[in-house]
Amino acid sequence: MGQPSVDTIWDWLDQVPDPEIPVISLVDLGIIRDVQWEGDMLNVTVTPTYSGCPATTIINLDIQTALREHGIEKLTLHRQLSPAWTTDWLTDKGKAALEKFGIAPPSAKGEPERCPNCGGHDLERTSQFGSTPCKALWRCRDCLEPFDYFKCI
């Protein structure tokens, strides 16, 4: 088989779900920073979301598994800390998928735009830390439902 193009690899990576929030892909999450061929070696550069995010190891494993299933034999994963990951790198497709799933996407003003369940605007923060390092807990006073907010960093 010929060497797949970098664009094809990006498409494949866009099929790999985030292990904690499977409605978005690793590409949507913005943590794949670079994909490059160096001869017959494929180099994929990944940046962690939060330093201690336990999903980091699983993410690396998922990338390797997915690419090997597509026939990539020589693969090196690189960790890149700088520039540090920011929620600005979430794709619009990813943000829409998050909201549909019930997680308010990050917003520049540092708080959710609206309740992902009912669209209400009367919101309050319960806790800055949620079920994963990247989420905060919020509550909607209109529909009284709690929800996760993907916090901005």
């Binding site: 939060y50 201690g52 079920s131």
Partner: peptide, 19 residues
């Protein structure tokens, strides 16, 4: 909420430790 917050803080700290 405090339990989750403390556990998340601990995770961040241990993640920074790895670096």
């Amino acid at each position: 909420e405090e339990d989750i917050a403390l556990a998340n803080t601990a995770l961040d700290l241990i993640g920074q430790t790895q670096f």
